[in-house]
Design a protein around this nucleic acid. Structure first.
Lengths: 319, 319
DNA sequence: CCATTTATACTCTCCTTGAGCATAAGATGG
DNA sequence: CCATCTTATGCTCAAGGAGAGTATAAATGG
C-alpha cells in the first residue's frame, strides 16, 4: 500500500505504472462436457492487453468475445485480479496486473482465423469429475502423494495438520467430497509440488499428478472460475446461459451435473426446477430420442425481472 | 480486449500502461455500530498507489493496515477491480485501475499522525439499517422519488418495469427486504440521479436522498463491501474477526445484526451457533451487565481447520 | 419483595430435502 | 402383437432444518 493513505485514489502517481491484461475463462457445455476456450493448443486462456477504447472492462471483454464467437456473451463476472512482480521473469521489469473474468456462452462457431478452440475443462482437472464416482487417479495417485507430502512435515503435529487439510479438501478418509473447493485443491497440490507449474526444483522430473498444465498461472485462474461457477449455479439461474433456446429437463440436468462434477437425483431436480417456475413448456417434444420423448422447455426470462437477483436453488447442497 | 488474443498474458505491451491503486474497505464493529475506516473527514476510503515492493496485493494491504491500526488484519478479501478512463477527469490522461479490498479488524487504536478515523457505515447508507424496522426515509423520501423516476419513463411498459425493479430492490409494495442488495440499491439510486455522486445536471440542486456522499466511486465500493460482507456472514465464520477475544452470545448477535441491518431471533441464533460448535465457554461470566449475567465465549479457532472453508450458517435466510 | 432485564432451555409446526416407488410413453427385436 | 429397454413423470414418505413461541432462571435497582 501507500506511504500516504490520505492521497486520493484518483491522484496518479508516477513510478507505479503497470500494464493491465484481461484473462478470460469462457465456459460452454456441449453434450455434457464443460469446455473452456483456449489458445496456444490448449496451454493458455485467451488473454491480451486491455484497450482503453472501451468504457469499462466488461464492455471490452464482451466486445472481444462477440467478435470471436459470433454471438453475445450471456453472463459475465469478474473473477480476480492478480498482481505479480515476477510475472515477466524480470523482477525489475514492468509489473503486470491481470484481471480475470468468467463468461458463459455456447460453443457453436468459433470465429475463423483464430487459433482459439474449446477444450474440456476436466482435461486440466481430472480429479474434479465425480459423476461416475471418485476418479481412480484420486485414490491411486493423488492421495498417496499427498500422504507422502504430509509425512514430510517436520513435526508429528504438523504432519497431522497437513493430512487433515488434504483429507478435508479432497474428501479423503470417508469425508464428503465438496465440489466447490476446486481452487483449494489446486493450491494444495501446488504447495505439495505436485503440479508442474509449481516449478520448484522438486527432485523428481515427471509431474506426478495427471492433468494438462497451462502457461503461467492460467490453470489457477481456471480453477477460480470453475469454483465460482460451481458455487453460482446453486443460487442463480446461470445454467441457462449455457443451454440452447429449447431443451429437455434431462439435458438441463446433464449440464448442471457436468459443471458440478457430480450427479443429482432426477426427480428432485425436476421438482426444484418446476416449482421455481424457471422454465415453461414450448409445447413441442424432443425428437431423436431413445425412450419416452421428453417435453421441450425454455427458460422464462421473466424470472430475472420478477425475482431480480433473488434466488434459485439447485439440489446440490452438501450433505 | 485485445486484437491479438494469442499473445500471452505475460507479454508486456507498451501503450497500455496504467496506474494501480488499492482501495480498502476496513470494517470494525463497536457497540453494535458497523464502522469503516475513512480519511478526508469521512469523504473517502483509505487508498493509495500500490507499491511493488510487496509480494502480492494482499501482503501490501495487510502491512499497511497493521502499520495504521497496530494489530493484524483478520480477514482480507478482494472485492472488485475498476478501470475507468474518466478517473482523473482527463480522458487522455493516465488510466487508473483501482483494486478494492474488504478487510475485517477491530476498532481499537488508530495509529497516531494519520487522519484516518472510523465512521459508521449507515451514515453513508441510512436506508440500509432495518434493525428498528424500515427506516423512515425509505417510505418518505426514497420511495416517492423512485416512483417519480419510474413515471418518467417513456412508455407505460417501461414505467412498470422500472417500478418493479425499484420495488424488488427496495422491498416496496409489501415485498420482502433483501439486505444483500446493497449495491443494486445504490446503483438504482444512481441511475435515478438521486445520488450526488451521479453528478448529472439533474435540474434540482439539493441531493434528494439522505446519506453522506463520498469522493469518486468510493461509496459504490463501500456498497460492494457491505453487500459482500452481508452475504459472507451467512456461511462463513467471519463475524468473529470483528469480535474481541471473549464475548457473550448477545454481543455476537448484536454484531451480526449490525452488519446485516436486521434483527434475528435470539433463541434460534444461539441454537445455531452452539450446535455448530463455533464457540466454547471461557468459564467466566460477563461483568457490568444489566439482568442475568451471560457466559463468556471465545471462538474455537479449531473449526477453521476441522471444517476448512466448509460452512457456517447464520439465521438470516430470506423468507 | 417486586418489577425489570437478560439468559437459557424446550417445544411445536411447517417446509425443505433426500430418497424411493410406481406408472406412462415411446422404440426395438422377436 | 408382445416382451423388454429406456427415458419421462407423478407421488409418497421420513428426517432434518428453520421460524416462532412458551417457560424458567438469575441478576439488578427500587
Amino acid at each position: 500500500m501507500a506511504r500516504s493513505p490520505q492521497k486520493k485514489a484518483s491522484a496518479p502517481a508516477s513510478g507505479n505504472a503497470v500494464t493491465a491484461d484481461l484473462v478470460a475463462v469462457l465456459v460452454a457445455v456441449t453434450d455434457g462436457t464443460p469446455k473452456i476456450m483456449t489458445i496456444a493448443g490448449g496451454a493458455a486462456l485467451p488473454s491480451g492487453p486491455f484497450e482503453f477504447t472501451h468504457r469499462s472492462l466488461q464492455t471490452a471483454l464482451r466486445a472481444w468475445v462477440e467478435a470471436q464467437t459470433g454471438h453475445p456473451l450471456g453472463y459475465v463476472e469478474q473473477l480476480y485480479t492478480f498482481a505479480d512482480r515476477g510475472r515477466s521473469g524480470d523482477a525489475k521489469g514492468p509489473h503486470s496486473v491481470s484481471i480475470s473474468y468468467l463468461g458463459l456462452t455456447r460453443e457453436d462457431r468459433v470465429g475463423e482465423g483464430f487459433e482459439a478452440h474449446w477444450s474440456g475443462w476436466y482435461d486440466y482437472f481430472p480429479w474434479e469429475d465425480h459423476r461416475a464416482g471418485a476418479p481412480a487417479c484420486l485414490a491411486k495417485i493423488i492421495a498417496p502423494q499427498l500422504k507422502a507430502w504430509a509425512k514430510a512435515a517436520s513435526s508429528p503435529m504438523l504432519q497431522r495438520e497437513r493430512w487433515q487439510r488434504c483429507a478435508i479438501t479432497f474428501g479423503l478418509d470417508d469425508r464428503d467430497w465438496n465440489e466447490e473447493l476446486v481452487l483449494q485443491r489446486y493450491e494444495l497440490l501446488w504447495e505439495a509440488s505436485l503440479i508442474p507449474e509449481a516449478g520448484r526444483a522438486h527432485g523428481r522430473e515427471a509431474p506426478v499428478v495427471p492433468g494438462k498444465p497451462m502457461t503461467a498461472d492460467h490453470r489457477r485462474i481456471l480453477a477460480t472460475g470453475i469454483a465460482r461457477l460451481r458455487a453460482k449455479i446453486k443460487y442463480r439461474p446461470v445454467v441457462f446461459e449455457l443451454m440452447p433456446a429449447e431443451f429437455t429437463l434431462l439435458q438441463l440436468q446433464r449440464s448442471v451435473e457436468a459443471l458440478a462434477g457430480r450427479l443429482v437425483h432426477k426427480q428432485n431436480f425436476r421438482r426444484l426446477i418446476e416449482q421455481q417456475e424457471l422454465v415453461e413448456e414450448t409445447g413441442a417434444m424432443a425428437a431423436d430420442t431413445v425412450g419416452r420423448p421428453a417435453k421441450l422447455f425454455r427458460f422464462r426470462h421473466a424470472v430475472l425481472a420478477e425475482r431480480a437477483v433473488a434466488g434459485t436453488k439447485l439440489p446440490l447442497s452438501r450433505t
